[in-house]
Amino acid sequence: MMDIQNSAWEIVRLARHPKRPTSKTLIKELFPDFIELHGDRLYGDDPSIIGGIASFNEKPITIIAQEKGVTTDDKIYRNFGMAHPEGYRKALRLMKQAEKFRRPIFCIIDTPGAYPGIGAEERGQAGAIATNLREMSQITVPIITVVLSEGGSGGALGIGVGDSVCMFENSIYSILSPEGFASILYKDSSKAAEAAALMKLTAADLFQLGVIDKIILEDVGLHINYQTGFNHLKNHLESELFRLSSFSPEKLLENRYLKYRNIGQYHIE
């Protein structure tokens, strides 16, 4: 029991390691010619979500990425990767653009969650995420998703629906933070390590539960050296793009629907 607890909590700590690369680094390494496109055309531009176009194996691809920021100023500017509704709406605008021009979409998840604030509520955070879930289930180009470090709840899911979802070895993906879970379960947020062990939030847990399709190995850990991990991701992206390109749009959507349709465990008498 102790081992499992340690390893889950250890992964939480690695996922939040200050030296772990953020989405910007990943984009720079995998997509050096990336051009960023801004704004939701409705309210503003949310720096918590980066969107744009790049080439990958000489073909265009749309990138949507949550960015937590690196330096203190940058982190504040990026709102620690916690998006407002305009971030989700920008993401959807760029995904629809990708669909129009028939290029695949690559989403990089890294957020503690959608921002819980007054402005976010006023501008319809719930509705923005809900709309993305519905629309992403119908976008007729391949969507490949990776959890880079932290996949926090509905805020992660808002750009996370895909044909193929993978996680880095030391990333987490959960319904709420271990601290939040501990404060509800034990009424004590300092028991986050115990909560993490119960929550099934590691890549290995989610793979076993059938929620993700692949674990991207990191070698020594992205916080020490990200080259190997990023190379594994690059290879995975290549093979998934090739695999998904063979499906007709109808087949793609059917498979995507069934992927989520089949998640859930229940009993019928």
Binding site: S137, Q138, S153, V161, I184, L209, R256, Y260, I263
Partner: peptide, 18 residues
């Protein structure tokens, strides 16, 4: 979403929306 079913609860959001 129901906390006790964790990530599986979260995925019900996609299932119903789809």
């Amino acid at each position: 979403a129901r906390m006790q079913e964790g990530i599986i609860s979260l995925m019900q959001m996609v299932k119903t929306s789809a």
